[in-house]
């Protein structure tokens, strides 16, 4: 059995399993529901589940950023987009392409290849438990280490990202402006 092994934190594994099951169901609903607003709300569940998984993976700062940026800002943007481009709120026809069923074999094939590669490469790799992390250093003092990394070795991508965000904000205003 690859999904559990001896000597691991049972509560962590059970929590992971429950959150993962909820996330997969919600993600399937995002791509299959017939209602655009419902798809956005299912997406909120997936994104919040990802944030919970980050907490389980000892990435609290990334989890908080996920909640702030995705669940807060991006979802509001999506709902604005839906409401500005669709007058009707409710079930609607024609959300899928004509050849949409072709996506199922493609996705299953991709999933098979990915699962094979992942299991082949990382079958026996265990993640360090919480108490081992705190003694190992580095990842333990999370926000400090992230700040040290972001502002010294990764400073150039950080500045580039600032320009990307500025350009995207100005570009979005220019595109969406009415005149």
């Amino acid at each position: 059995m690859i999904l559990a092994q001896d000597g691991v934190n049972v509560a962590q594994n059970v929590g992971f399993g429950i959150i993962a099951a909820v996330m997969i169901v919600a993600a399937l609903c995002v791509v299959t529901t017939r209602n655009v607003v419902h798809a956005a709300l299912w997406l909120v569940i997936v994104l919040a589940g990802v944030a919970a998984q980050y907490v389980l993976a000892a990435a609290e700062f990334v989890a908080i950023s996920q909640v702030l940026v995705y669940v807060g800002a991006v979802m509001v943007l999506f709902l604005f987009g839906i409401m500005l481009t669709r007058a009707q709120i409710g079930r609607e026809q024609g959300l899928n392409n004509r050849g949409w069923a072709l996506g199922i074999p493609v996705a299953l094939l991709l999933l098979g290849v990915l699962c094979f590669a992942v299991i082949d490469a990382f079958e026996d790799t265990t993640l360090p438990a919480e108490n081992e992390i705190s003694s190992a250093g580095g990842i333990a003092e999370n926000p400090t280490a992230i700040a040290d990394n972001m502002l010294s070795p990764y400073l150039v991508p950080f500045l580039a990202l600032s320009f990307v965000l500025l350009a995207a904000a100005i570009g979005a205003i220019v595109l969406a402006r009415k005149d």
């Binding site: 690859i2 999904l3 559990a4 092994q5 691991v8 934190n9 962590q12 594994n13 992971f16 993962a20 996330m23 997969i24 993600a27 399937l28 995002v30 791509v31 997936v46 998984q53 389980l56 993976a57 996705a107 299953l108 991709l110 999933l111 990915l114 699962c115 992942v118 299991i119 990382f122 079958e123 790799t125 265990t126 993640l127 438990a129």
Partner: peptide, 16 residues
């Protein structure tokens, strides 16, 4: 906790 748990969840979400 095994690393494949997270990686497989990522693979499933990616395929969806």
């Amino acid at each position: 906790m095994l690393a494949v748990n997270f990686l497989l969840l990522g693979a499933v979400l990616f395929s969806i």
